[in-house]
Structure formats: C-alpha cells, structure tokens
C-alpha cells in the first residue's frame, strides 16, 4: 500500500465509518474493511476503478467529487472523510474541504507538497515547472490544477477555522518521516498528510 495510505489506515479507528473521495481502485477501503471493520463508501469517476471496487464488493458511487458531496450526503454522516492525493486536482479545494468537514466529523487530506526541495531546485536552477515522482506531469497535461505547499495548506486552515489534529509528511521511499522531514516538513516532505476538523467542533467522538 502507498505510504500515505498506510499512515491514513493507522489514524483511522476500528469500527468507524468513512467516505473516501476519489477512492481509485478501492485499496484503502478494502484494507480498512478487511482489517479494521470500517464501514466505508467510495466516490470515484473512473470507470475501470469503479469496476474494480465493485469486484471487491465495496460500496461505490460513480460521481464527480465537485458535485458528489452536495448531491448525496447529509451533515455529519461519517466519522472520517478522506481525500488522498486528489485535493490538488479538484476545481474548488476550498469548498471541498468545507464540504468534507460538513459531511464528516474529521477530514483526512493528503497532497503532494509543491515546496519539496527537489521541485524548488528544478524551478530555482532550471527555471522549469517541477516534474517529480509525486508530480509526474508537465504543466500542459497535469490534472493538478490547485497545487499547494505545507505552509499554504496550514495558512488556509488557520484562515478557515480548521483545526489540524495531526500532521505528517513522507516521501516515496520512506513510509515514515525522517528527522529532516520532521524538522523541515515543507522542504523535505514529498507528500503531506493531515487530519483536520472544524475548530468549533465539540464532543467529537472520534477525537483522540
């Protein structure tokens, strides 16, 4: 399993309910169902991924993320709403994060950190838009239309009254943060992983 998914799985408590936005072939949903008795449902648009989810007996809704949350889900119907490596490819991340925290008690978001040193180096020295392992596309064919950094994301959270419950950064070779990553997450983290909730939320049953 991808490093960020393994960490998400650790953060999620046994027997809870989750919504996985852009769940792909359902790897995380399946893992959580089989190992942590999690009752999950996925939202996905890709036909092949949907077929894979159905073959794995997962509950899946074929829908665009930008409309799906509004169309199908009432307030607070999940313990966690997860969006892994998808935020940067959505039309309106700001509204989507709000929606995640409307539908779920907590949100878990992972995204490629634009400020990783490799990308910075490519831009600073080469003068090109970074193309890295976590951002493999060129500017002209990338689905990633809303890239951000660890700092950007945290600034948005502060501005929107969103509390960060947990943060970790990893790279593609380590499924654990190294010391450098822990001290300089915005420079050494390739993928950022956040667990968030609304700051005004009280009596959060899934709160640690």
């Amino acid at each position: 399993m991808r490093a960020d998914l393994a960490i998400i799985a650790e953060w999620i408590k046994t027997g809870t309910s989750i919504l996985d936005l852009g769940c792909g072939d359902g790897t995380l949903l399946k893992h959580l169902r089989d190992n942590q008795q999690v009752n999950g449902i996925g939202l996905e648009i890709n036909e092949q991924d949907i077929e894979s989810c159905i073959n794995e007996k997962l509950n899946i809704i074929q829908s665009d993320l930008n409309e799906g949350l509004q169309a199908y889900f009432s307030d607070c119907c999940f313990d966690y709403v997860i969006m892994s490596q998808t935020l940067q490819a959505t039309k309106n991340p700001e509204i989507l994060i709000e929606e995640m925290l409307r539908v779920g008690q907590q949100g878990i978001v992972t995204f490629p950190n634009m400020a990783h040193w490799r990308g910075r180096l490519q831009l600073a020295l080469g003068g090109f838009m970074p193309v890295t392992k976590s951002l493999p596309n060129h500017w002209y064919n990338t689905p990633n239309i809303h890239l951000c950094t660890v700092r950007d994301f945290e600034a948005l959270c502060r501005e929107r009254g969103i509390r960060i419950l947990e943060r970790t950064v990893v790279d593609y070779t380590h499924s654990r943060s190294t010391l450098l990553m822990r001290f300089f997450p915005n420079l050494f983290g390739e993928v950022a992983i956040y667990r968030i909730c609304r700051a005004d939320q009280i009596n959060n049953p899934t709160e640690n």
Partner: peptide, 21 residues
C-alpha cells in the same frame, strides 16, 4: 436515480451507484 441513492444513503443502507455513459 440519484434521488433513490440519496434516500438509501440517508437511511444508512448499503448501496452502490453507477452512471453509465
């Protein structure tokens, strides 16, 4: 169909939904 799906989800049912092109 989405109305049906929404109602089933609100009622806490197990449901999958596919919109075929």
């Amino acid at each position: 169909s989405r109305e049906i799906v929404k109602a089933l989800l609100d009622a806490g049912k197990q449901v999958s939904y596919v919109e075929v092109k």
